[in-house]
Amino acid sequence: MNFFTLDAGNYGFFLGALLLSLVVIAVYKDWLLLTPALVVQYLVMAVIANDLNNTAARVMLGPTPLAVFLKGMSGVVAGLILFLTGYAILFAARGFRREEAEAEASGLGGLRRFFYREEAARLNRFRYVDYLLPLGAVVIAVGATYALTTLLPFSGNFLGDFSFYLLGSVGIAIMVVGRDILKLGAGLLVSLNGADLLYSLLRNGDSPLVLGISATITILLALLISYLAILYHSKMKTLLISEGVRRQRKQVS
């Protein structure tokens, strides 16, 4: 089976994988699911972009087209960076909890820690709305994608138009409903992937330099998100921006 070519046998598989990965990125907060979904999305888009690229002047890296290689690799590296960031934050949070437990055991707990625990419990509580809102946003984005694909087609290829609009609209939906820095970053990466697809769709001829810089931008964006997330978490012990602002307002009042 040739993985770089779409055919009747694997068409549904790739489209399903794309949709599923987008839903996972939009809805879930868990890093163990979110970052692999991002990698899967990049790999699927690499295959779709490769199949839709009808350019005659193809740059190859051995048997693999350069565009596929760079897109796949940038996705893997970006996913890895975000995964390690999520892992580092989890690790730091675990250390913080251990310190807290030790302080509690040695009688250094006090009222302040009690309130902190209350607040953490409130934040970490399972709420349906946290999942329903992103899911609703994805459903609206998919609806908008279908409408845009049928009303404003531009490339002459349904799959290409659909994938581009899907990535753009779901990326924006993730940014709109996302509450933490890493989630916003994932939304940006999804939108960026859409622009790369458009480049493959409408451009005549691959430019290795553009493809390379584009892959670099993806990786640097992931690094920047990781930097901001770690910087913020190290000080505020949360990734939710609104939570940090709320806490400061409470302190001021």
Partner: peptide, 21 residues
């Protein structure tokens, strides 16, 4: 100020990526 600076930077990051796109 730190929280506000991070918040402003995230907004700016979104704006520059959308500008690029």
């Amino acid at each position: 100020r730190f929280v506000r600076a991070i918040k402003a930077s995230v907004r700016y990051l979104i704006a520059i990526v959308l500008f690029g796109l």
